[in-house]
Amino acid sequence: MKNLSNHKTIQLKPKYKIKKDNTPSYIYNEIFALIKRLYIQTQRRPSMLISGVIQPLLWLVLFGALFHNAPVSLLTSNTKYNSFLSPGIIIFTSFTGSINAGLPLMFDREFGFLNRLLISPLKSRDSLLISTVFFIMTITTGQTIFIMLFNIFVYKQNNQNIITILSMLMISILITLSIASISICLAFLLPGHIELLALILIINLPMLFSSTALAPLSFMPYWLQVIASINPLTYAIETIRYLSNVTDIQNHEFIIQNVWINMTLNSSIYLLIFITILSIMVVKNIISYKFE
């Protein structure tokens, strides 16, 4: 309402009413644009993509050569050490790629691009989380497939069918989703990329050594067995190890015997699904609170 000098009042109304597009295609285009932006960044800086393949490949080759002449039954129960090691390296590849998922968001925070995204007409701010998780999931899946092909053609581990390979990929994707969501959450909570990189360096190798990637639980001291039983990577590694080394899969056979409980194949998969859903829900609530 506006008062004029002749005491007449007029009401200002917009000529056209702006309507927000809430159709699903608008949301998909929004997520697609954010994912495309991340792919362009990777294309311009491919070092992270290449290092995500080289690092686990070096672990696989060097540790496989280190224990090549060791007694087979000492660690792996009459299984070649390369066959024992490869499931751990597959999960380590997914873990290494997903733990770096928060770095693009952290750099967007520091350079001011995140503020531009937040004030842009996004249908939902969940698009930022969905696009980042989908991007890192595709990257780590490609790296995991490369490690699997390396095992098949170099170490002649060609006893796996397509169902087994797809199951192994699904297990690695579950680890990727849970770890990537936590990394994205840390990108919003930590003050800068130096703190995030320091935290990644601190937890990267301890997560590997406190799992069954390099040695079975029976080979560890009791205190390390307790830590490995808490580590979710252990259950993913043992699930993939069972799928890759056994031709006749038995759902009621114990594949993990930790310090508390014996886990079957189904129970291990259910546990990984529960951990993934729980981490995504908790991280989503934390990010929503941070936005407010």
Results as ranks from 00 to 15, higher is better:
170 M>I: 15
292 E>I: 12
11 Q>S: 15
216 P>Q: 01
61 V>G: 06
27 I>Q: 04
249 I>S: 05
287 I>D: 00
153 F>I: 14
113 F>A: 06
256 I>S: 03
85 L>S: 07
154 V>T: 15
69 N>L: 14
24 P>R: 11
119 I>Y: 15
272 L>Q: 10
282 V>H: 03
76 T>I: 07
164 T>N: 01
187 A>W: 11
191 P>C: 02
207 M>I: 00
283 V>D: 00
39 Y>I: 15
73 S>H: 09
114 L>T: 10
42 T>H: 05
68 H>E: 12
102 G>C: 10
285 N>R: 14
81 Y>A: 00
205 L>F: 09
228 A>H: 05
201 L>E: 03
152 I>D: 11
161 N>F: 11
213 A>M: 13
25 S>W: 14
175 I>D: 01
44 R>I: 12
286 I>V: 08
248 D>L: 05
266 N>G: 07
117 L>Y: 12
258 N>F: 09
270 Y>D: 08
89 I>E: 00
244 S>P: 02
219 F>E: 08
238 E>V: 06
263 M>Y: 15
136 I>W: 04
211 S>N: 10
271 L>Y: 12
258 N>C: 10
246 V>F: 14
94 S>M: 08
186 L>T: 05
1 M>G: 02
98 S>C: 13
109 R>A: 13
286 I>A: 01
244 S>K: 03
68 H>S: 06
230 I>G: 06
267 S>Q: 08
177 L>M: 01
253 E>W: 02
112 G>T: 09
205 L>V: 01
152 I>M: 15
195 E>R: 03
148 M>P: 00
269 I>T: 09
142 G>M: 10
212 T>G: 05
58 L>N: 09
69 N>D: 15
241 R>F: 10
205 L>K: 05
27 I>T: 04
71 P>E: 13
261 I>M: 13
226 V>G: 04
111 F>R: 15
192 G>A: 13
18 I>T: 11
193 H>M: 10
282 V>I: 12
163 I>H: 04
185 C>P: 04
115 N>M: 09
265 L>M: 02
21 D>V: 07
163 I>C: 05
163 I>D: 08
194 I>R: 14
25 S>D: 10
72 V>Y: 12
267 S>V: 08
30 E>Y: 00
284 K>A: 12
152 I>T: 07
207 M>E: 00
35 I>V: 13
132 T>Y: 06
41 Q>S: 03
107 F>G: 09
217 L>W: 05
54 I>R: 00
160 Q>K: 13
96 T>Q: 14
63 F>Q: 03
161 N>W: 15
64 G>M: 07
291 F>T: 11
218 S>T: 09
226 V>F: 12
67 F>Q: 01
7 H>I: 06
75 L>I: 04
148 M>R: 02
150 F>I: 15
33 A>G: 00
174 L>T: 04
6 N>V: 05
16 Y>C: 06
47 S>I: 15
82 N>H: 10
205 L>G: 06
271 L>Q: 09
36 K>Y: 09
259 V>F: 01
68 H>K: 14
47 S>L: 08
286 I>P: 02
88 G>I: 02
4 L>V: 07
8 K>Q: 10
139 I>W: 04
